[in-house]
Design a protein around this nucleic acid. Structure first.
Lengths: 195, 195
DNA sequence: GTCTATAATTAGATAGAC
DNA sequence: GTCTATCTAATTATAGAC
């Protein structure tokens, strides 16, 4: 359709975020131009500025949305009381969540350096809150005597790096089904902390 | 010194690579201009092209150098015959090596998407060779009955992600000394595979 | 070997027509 | 709400003086 004008605020907005997410994940924030994003959306570059004040805010909003959703979904997760079952549930959740959102994960971990200092600080606060949730589980397990970790903070970073890494190599329809991957990672996480 | 001309091929070449490495690691390949690199080296932008045909080759050379050195250093490493000791030695080597080269690690893992397809394929071959070294250790451990991993390839990716992650948070002069970090990670790696 | 100058292209963002 | 046109600034890379 060769439309030149029309009202599509409700559809162009989400499409902008979606296109930016895909392009940033694939080529990197700095390597993607507003014109490329506009082309993907199907509008001219100028039209994008009706939906975002600038490119930096676009990136920040994508990352904040992702972390807000991650924290909210985690909070809605039923986590067992027993530290071992709790860690298993967390690990399973983390892997499954990240396998479902490879683009968001990639951006959240790779584009931190392209945020302004203020935006970076805001994102880091959110990320830290998520890490603290895992660290609390490890601390409980240590207190209960079921985990053996010399340093809860180090173990937290190690586990998150391991679990998040799944989204780097996992491909839909690959050799291993999603659920199996999550199960194996959860098992490795439990073993890693001596459970 | 306000020199305008002079012969410094032997010193400008390495300085170019060093400046590019630091800037790429800090801001990302796409976000760094040849002018920024030139300013860091202390020459004009045009002079850089005496030492690299273009920006892409500069990135490729940095990544290839890093992986070549990684593979060579691993090959020179004395690895015990026992799978458990072998994995411990590999993990310790990997963490120590990566903690010493945070800039190289960052570039090698973050700038893959900014390589041309041909350059990407070449780098992936090198990376794959390194991963295969770890996978072989895991396979030996499984064969010897001392490791329990449902999938050697998955476990390889999981361990490398975990071990490499150390360089993301570790800071020189921080809470934990380098050697302690390497030791704890190695211990977690062994446990993760059921050793 | 490095400089200055510049070509050719592209970037983010804005103005005004429709 | 979108388009076309454009501004300003920055980009990679090259040419030629010294």
């Amino acid at each position: 359709m060769a439309r030149k004008t029309g009202s599509h605020a409700d559809i162009t907005g989400p499409r902008l975020r979606s296109a930016a997410r895909a392009l940033f994940a694939r080529h990197g924030y700095a390597a993607v131009s507003m014109r490329q994003i506009a082309a993907e959306v199907g509008v001219q570059a100028g039209a994008l500025y009706l939906y975002t004040p600038d490119k930096q805010t676009l990136l920040f909003d994508l990352m904040k949305e992702h972390l807000d959703d991650l924290l909210a979904t985690l909070a809605a997760q039923p986590l067992p009381a027993d530290p071992r079952a709790r860690l298993a549930a967390f690990a399973h959740f983390h892997v499954a969540y990240h396998l479902d959102r490879p683009a968001e994960v990639f951006i959240a971990y790779m584009e931190l350096r392209n945020l302004t200092p203020e935006n970076f600080a805001a994102i880091e606060r959110l990320r830290h809150r998520y890490e603290d949730a895992l660290q609390a589980i490890l601390a409980e397990g240590v207190a209960a005597g079921v985990f053996r970790v010399p340093d809860a903070r180090l173990a937290t970073m190690a586990l998150i790096a391991m679990l998040t890494g799944a989204s780097q190599w996992y491909r839909e329809g690959g050799r291993l089904p999603r659920e199996t991957v999550a199960e194996i990672y959860a098992e490795m996480a439990l073993r890693a902390v001596g459970a």
